[in-house]
Structure formats: C-alpha cells, structure tokens
Design a protein around this nucleic acid. Structure first.
Length: 468
DNA sequence: AGCGATGATTATTG
DNA sequence: CAATAATCATCGCT
C-alpha cells in the first residue's frame, strides 16, 4: 500500500479539473523508505529515489535529461536489483493489501435514491424534459402543475450540478489514470513495475475517485432531501385561495349541489379558471389536486353543517340563477309576463354583477346548469328564480309575495325560501336545496339527480312552512 | 392569545 | 383509487 501512495503523492500536483479533492484523497505524508535495510547503500538509493520523485515536478526537458542520466548511471543495474529485492520483501504486504471492492451498500443506497428522485438515471433529451420526468417521479402523481415549478427548477439545478460534477470527476479520473499509467510505464525502466501492479494502481485510483463520487452523491442526496423537506413544509404552510378562486369554486359547488363531484376535466377547468382569474395578481395558483381538496373539504363541511352554509348557498345559487335567468331571458325574450313577482327590481339590481359573472363563466356555468344538472329548464318557473334572487339580496324580497318576511331574521327566511325554491324549481331540485343530498345525508347514490322528479310533493309542505 | 375558517394531510372504507 | 372523516397547521380577524 505504500508504493502507490507515494506515487500518488508525487503526482499530487496534477490538476483535477479545477476541483479540490482534498476530502477523497487522504494521502499519507511521505516518509523515507521506512522498511529499507542496507545502511551502506541507503544513502545512494535515497538520493536516486529522490531524483525519481522530483522528476515529475520538473519540466519535460529537465526530466528527460535527468531520466537519461539516471538510466545511464553506472549504478543503475545495481539499483535496479536492489529495488527488485526490496520489492520482493514488501511483496507480501502488497498482496495483503489487495482489497476487492464489494458493492458498497451505502453507495447502492445513494444510487437508488438519486435514481428515485430523478437526479441520476437516464439523461433523456433536453433538460426540461428530464426535469419534468424528475418532478413527476417525485410528485408521484400527474400533478405537475405550476405549483411545483419552483421545486422542479431547483431539482433541475441540482441535477445539472450533479451531472457536470460527475462528468468532471470522470474526466479527471481518466486523465489521472492515463497520466499515472504513462508515468509508471516510464518508470518501469528505472525500477521494476509489473503490468499487474499498474493494473492494481489503476484500481486504486478508481477507488479513490469513486469515493469522491460517493461524496458527491451523498451531498446531492442531502441537497435533494433538504429541498424536498422545504417543499413539503411550504406545502403545509397553506395560503388561502384568492377571493375570486373561492368564488369560482363555490359557484360550481352550489350549482352542482346535488352532485358536487366534478370530473377530472371539470376540475382541470376550474383550476385553469382560477389561475386565469388570479393570473395577474400575486394570488396563489390553484392546481387540480387543490381543487380536489377543496371539494372534499367543502362537501364534508357543507354536509356537516348545512345551516351554516345556507346563506352562502343562497348567494351562489342566486348568482347562478341570475345567470340562468338572464340567459333564459335573453333566449326567450321577455316571456316572463306571467311572473307573479316584479321581475324588474330584483333582476336589474343584480344585472351588473351578472355582467361580470357572465363574462367570466359563460362557458361552463350555463351549460352546467342546463344540461349537466337538470336537463330541462322549462321557463314557466322562472319566477322562483327571481324570488331567490331577491331573497339573497336581502333587501327587497320583503315586499314580495312570500309573506314570511315578517320575521326579521333574514337567515331563516332565506333558508325557507331557498327550500321552497329548491323544491319547486324548473331548474331542478338540486339548485341549492339541502335536500339535494338525499335525506340520509349522502350524495353518493345520486350522481344523476333524476331531475324531473316533479315538484309535486315537498313543495306543499315547505311552502306552507314559509308562508307561516 | 384566542378562535373560527380553511387548505392540506392522514387514516379508513368500499 | 377516490371519497370520507378526522386531524393538523396556518391564516385572518378580534
């Protein structure tokens, strides 16, 4: 183990691609020829060895000259035999030092992790593609939306650094190996070096470099772990959705109250819509999985305490109702002649809001209301819609035909109204009636709210309630 | 600080 | 595997 170590020491000046490798190469300081005997020749040998050692530190010309003089030295044959002798004696220790490299379990662990994290592994195509793959691998899902861009970018960075470093080390290793081999071959003329020893040398160099690589891998792993934990922490650190986003989600929720389970496409659309709406602002972007979370939370919380959400339900139901009404009105052109209520007041005061809603949601909201949920949207009942509108405005419904207004409590009244409307509607019971979830409290079995269930029953009782 | 609202995570279930 | 239910952790307000 000594020979090679010294040689490496002698070659220590070789540049390693500009990278410090101090950690990996724990080279022992050079002592003299510790085990050498033969005091008489020791001095001579020491001198010559010294010359050999310093060869590499000198310019080529000098080195050539020195080598030449060495080779022509009269003592050369003697020295050679002496070296052979010494070598024979130390040969045993060399054999003993022969270490095979068992697949280091830790290295394998690191490799596996890097592979799993997408840091190592096949370098496919562009960096962005690789980054995407990496992100997908980490996310463990199809959730490769904008939210992860930060994470992805950092992971890509790590990946790039890792690969460049790895490349550099590999290159340095190769250079170093060839350099050493050349030197050894060269020196084999001055001292006995068998090809086997060169081979062994190469092996040792490779081991050294692979230990450096392991360090690199380790630190890369650490970096990924840190990045990951930060990322997870950041995810836990929630940010409330923007008002508009919540609005959009709520609109969908309450307009699909009978079956508030948006399909994957619907979720995507909602997420997209939320992004667009919030795009300019600093507001958080919303992902599909966040939409899923939101609906999950919303369903459970709504079901848990319908009362608490009633006001909100009315609000959004009315909103969509306004949309619907407006659309219907536009389509049918003032066919509300029958309407028992006074359409104008309630209708118009919401109009401006409608404008806004209509522009931002005309594509999905209306179709949902009419096709998605009820299938039929016979007009005659539009009066109910106006009723609900007024109710939610809180202001003007009092004078309207629903006499219940006597009680000042707006909430209860709105609740009652909503129930009444929920039962009557031509827009189908799901509009925002809590009865949308079958009396048992579950949505599960009613994916397709058999809609046309005529308003016959229910309506009566509820109505009577309200009017009293 | 306390508290409710709310987004996210976890465990359970069919 | 998606939905639910429970729980966690933070936000926003008072």
């Amino acid at each position: 183990m000594e020979d090679p170590a010294r040689i490496m020491q002698a070659l220590g000046g070789v540049a390693l691609g500009g990278h410090s490798v101090q950690g990996g190469m724990g080279l022992p300081p050079s002592h003299g020829l510790e085990g050498a005997d033969g005091d008489g020749r020791k001095q001579d040998i020491g001198d010559i060895l010294q010359q050999i050692m310093t060869i590499t530190d000198q310019s080529l010309d000098e080195a050539q000259a020195k080598k030449h003089s060495l080779n022509c030295h009269r003592m050369k044959p003697a020295l050679f035999s002496v070296l052979c002798e010494i070598k024979e004696k130390t040969g045993l220790s060399i054999r003993g030092a022969q270490e095979d490299d068992p697949p280091d379990p830790q290295l394998m662990r690191l490799d596996n992790m890097l592979l799993a994290e997408g840091v190592s592994g096949p370098e496919k195509g562009s960096a962005s593609a690789a980054a995407a793959a990496a992100a997908a691998a980490v996310g463990g899902g199809v959730d490769n939306s904008v939210e992860h861009s930060d994470y992805r970018a950092k992971l890509t960075q790590i990946r790039q650094i890792y690969h460049t470093e790895l490349e550099k080390y590999e290159q340095a290793c190769n250079e170093f190996t060839t350099h050493v081999m050349n030197l050894l071959r060269e020196q084999s003329r001055t001292r006995p070096i068998s090809p086997k020893e060169i081979e062994r040398m190469v092996g040792i160099i490779h081991r050294k470099f692979s230990s450096i690589q392991m360090q690199l891998k380790q630190s890369t792993c650490e970096a990924v772990m840190i990045l990951r934990s930060r990322f997870l922490d950041a995810r836990r650190k929630r940010r409330n959705f923007s008002k508009q986003a919540t609005e959009i989600l709520n609109e969908y929720f309450y307009s699909h109250l009978s079956n508030p389970y948006p399909s994957e496409e619907a979720k995507e659309e909602l997420a997209k819509k939320c992004q667009i709406t919030v795009s300019q602002g600093v507001g958080s972007t919303i992902t599909v999985s966040q939409v899923s979370n939101w609906f999950g939370n919303k369903r459970i919380r709504y079901k848990k305490n319908i009362g608490k959400f009633q006001e909100e339900a009315n609000l959004y139901a009315a909103k969509t109702a306004v949309n619907a009404a407006h659309a219907v009105a536009a389509a049918v052109q003032n066919s509300q002649a029958d309407s028992p209520t006074t359409p104008n007041s309630g209708f118009q005061m919401k109009d401006e809001e409608f404008q806004m809603d209509a522009t931002e949601s005309k594509n999905s909201l209306l179709p949902n209301m009419f096709t998605g949920s009820s299938g039929s949207f016979s007009l005659p009942n539009s009066g109910d819609m106006f009723m609900s509108m007024q109710g939610l405005n809180g202001a003007s419904y009092a004078g309207a035909q629903v006499g219940a207004g006597v009680q000042s409590q707006g909430d209860t009244i709105r609740h009652a109204i909503s129930q009444a409307v929920g039962y009557n509607d031509g827009l189908r019971g799901h509009l925002y009636s809590p009865h949308g979830l079958n009396g048992n409290g579950g949505w599960h079995d009613a994916p397709t709210p058999s809609s046309v269930t005529s308003p016959t029953e229910g309506a009566g009782s509820v109505h009577s309630d309200t009017s009293n």
